[in-house]
Design a protein around this nucleic acid. Sequence first.
RNA 1: GGAGAGAUGGCCGAGUAGGUCGAAGGCGCUCGCCUGCUAAGCGAGUAUACUGGGAAACCGGUAUCCAGGGUUCGAAUCCCUGUCUCUCCGCCA
Length: 424
Amino acid sequence: MLDMKYIRENLDETERSLRTRGGESYLGGFRDLDERRRTLLKEGETLKALRNTVSDEIGRTKDKSLVQDKIVEMREVSQKIKGLDEELNQVDDQLNSFLLTVPNIPHATTPVGISENDNVLVRSWGEPVTLPFKAMAHWDLGEDLGILDFERGAKITGARFTLYRGAGARLERALINFMLDLHGDAHGYQEVLPPFMVNRDSMQGTGQLPKFEDDLFKLVDPDFFMIPTAEVPVTNIHRGEILKKSDLPISYCAYTPCFRREAGSYGKDTRGLIRQHQFNKVELVKFVHPSESDAALETLTGHAEKILQLLKLPYRVMALCSGDIGFSAAKTYDLEVWLPGQSCYREISSCSTFGDFQARRASIRFREDEKAKPEFVHTLNGSGLAVGRTLVAILENYQQEDGSVLIPEVLRPYMGGMERISRL
RNA sequence: GGAGAGAUGGCCGAGUAGGUCGAAGGCGCUCGCCUGCUAAGCGAGUAUACUGGGAAACCGGUAUCCAGGGUUCGAAUCCCUGUCUCUCCGCCA
């Protein structure tokens, strides 16, 4: 959520920045609502002040017969107040739901552009593997090796659900442990294991609601949602809190499954593990002092990259353009891993800074010093990494001509020493 | 799922025949004084949001005693609904 006062004072400039995202108009109607609100507020508060002083007088007067006329008068005032309050509530609701649908202002360094074609290559690591034989796609490899069972997954639940078996299941678990260990031990993140369902307030705090309810799996009876990413429960750990400056930066890493409707992506990536309704992810989340957030995005992205480097998977880093960044993000780097089976780079991590956008929605603050007013922290997060897609990348990059798949060395201790997955 | 208890300021904790309660008291914290030994004492201060004025320091208004409604001239205090926490019973990984 953007700061109402900031919008009020920088309306044109804000509108201009927002339009680099590609929409037509973002702030139309704001000025009228805002002015209406302040007028109502002033009127109501003046009457309330009157009522307070007169009621005080009434209270002080022992002989109530002396103040009958005032009681009658105040009865009317109260009626008026009630009317004004009702109208104010409506305007407040309108203004609020309006503000909740306005996306974040792109960071000054976010490249301006319309679509993913305008994303900017920042750097690349490793050479895209060219295999001396015809590379297989991971879905064929996985089925041949008996470690991915797409048919059973579809039977148990439906399309975009997969059953992992044997070494496949273990490899997924190995990756989760490897990632958590690295981020926890080497990168200084505290591991957390949050709830996988969250309430409406949490979804609103990180920006999934109210705008993107269709992308979420929703429970019917308690008004809960399955998390689409650990970003939601983990960022909301500190919702409504005022942190100490000395607590910052706070760094969490979390493994969770993620649940996404993938509405609107029918027919896209229908084969294999790339786009599932349920997938595993290790997420990195940071709460930082505003002055640190730019640097924090770089280090956080580096932490995600480290996983790919240790797994020796070639990748590149893309700076997303203004038209491609998410609703809540100010700036985003995508990590894209090379997939020989498909001869292309595919997103495997997305690292973003949100500035104070989420912190304002979720009211996460800190004090510069004991007496200072609370200020909003900055929040960041990034996948470190999407586990299913990492498994895909391993299968495709480490495949051998005989159909077996070598296990990256760093994962072998997590696989009971196994060096290779072969056909049974 | 059944029965009961409770939710007050950073923390603890008063406050139920409605008014003088933004809220006693204690702790913690900040500043000052005193004192000279790792302490005690004394004094002052110590919530948040919105809003008006001011260049600013700051001053004023309104709201907030879990949340949302209601009664009333007036509610932390009365009524209704919801949420959460705790205890007991049942069930259960």
